[in-house]
């Protein structure tokens, strides 16, 4: 695309004005992230001052009213729910992208892709509600109490599936056609081509998809809050209720004051750090990307 930014022949003063006001607007847009980080830090600072970061991991329990701020059960909750859902959603999502590209007849591929897009557009509160009235009672029949890590993993899995499926779909589309034709000309059967040629060629896109879905799984709040039972504990089985970092913020923010409120901002800060780390690694991967 031709950029006219170095057009030194421009004689119009309105252009100067426009350019500078646009720069001002873009600065606002770009500064929002900084503003978020600054406000999280400012709000978290009091508790970091008189409690210290270490005690968020070494305190005996999470009882903010008594000055005990152990975040580790919630961190484990987030980690387990995230890992479980990513482990299930990744193969399913990649397979459904493979279905779209290499297995489905065109009549099915288009509506199937639309369906995934629709799935991506359904709000998290609706997923949570469905999980609460449909999934949780089903799980309770197998093993009470019902609201559990398992329910959280399943709901998260359905929610992040469209993310990985759409990303995988896009990255499979960038694999050059001649690779596939070449492999087919060598007489390789379909799955062998996909496994041996398509997946390696689309690797970086698939990896970016996994990172994106991980970010989504970590950040999800409402659905997890509705189906996980929200007991502060490190789960010992998938049927135990858990509370995630995000759910903890949503549950306690309403009445938290003083150090308690600040402690919730600390968990927000932890979330933000994870997300920034994921974004950086996603960019690092896509820089090494081979095709577009």
């Amino acid at each position: 695309m031709t950029s006219l930014s170095s057009n030194t022949l421009s004689r119009w003063s309105t252009d100067e004005l426009l350019c500078w006001s646009l720069r001002g607007i873009a600065t606002i847009a770009g500064a929002i992230v900084m503003l978020i980080v600054v406000f999280l830090i400012v709000e978290a600072l009091p508790v970091l001052h008189h409690v210290g970061l270490l005690r968020f991991f070494t305190d005996p329990s999470w009882h903010p009213a008594e000055g005990l701020y152990n975040l580790t059960p919630m961190l484990w909750g987030t980690l387990f729910a995230m890992t479980g859902s990513v482990l299930i959603a990744t193969p399913l999502g990649v397979l459904s992208a493979v279905f779209c590209h290499y297995y489905a007849p065109p009549v099915l591929a288009r509506p199937y892709r639309r369906l995934i897009e629709l799935l991506a557009g359904i709000p998290s509160v609706v997923y949570g509600f469905w999980g609460l009235v449909v999934l949780v009672p089903l799980i309770a029949e197998v093993q009470p109490p019902g609201p559990s890590l398992l329910a959280g993993i399943l709901i998260l899995m359905i929610m992040i599936l469209p993310t990985i499926a759409l990303m995988a779909d896009a990255s499979l589309a960038t694999v050059p056609q001649q690779y596939i034709r070449g492999a087919a000309a060598l007489g390789l059967p379909r799955w062998a081509i996909i496994r041996g040629v398509v997946f390696p060629a689309a690797r970086s896109g698939l990896l970016t998809g996994v990172i994106l879905e991980t970010g989504r799984a970590i950040g999800e709040t409402m659905a997890i809050l509705m189906v996980c039972g929200n007991v502060v504990q490190t789960p010992s089985s998938v049927f135990d209720p858990i509370r995630t970092l995000t759910a903890n913020i949503a549950l306690e923010m309403a009445y938290a004051l003083g150090d308690h409120r600040a402690a919730l901002f600390v968990s927000g800060l932890v979330l933000m750090t994870i997300i920034v780390a994921l974004a950086v690694s996603a960019e690092w991967i896509s820089r090494g990307r081979m095709y577009g």
């Binding site: 978020i36 950040g219 913020i249 979330l271 994921l278």
Partner: peptide, 11 residues
């Protein structure tokens, strides 16, 4: 784009 919605809520 990746910031979790609950963090937007806090902010």
């Amino acid at each position: 784009a990746g910031v979790p919605s609950i963090v937007f809520g806090l902010f």
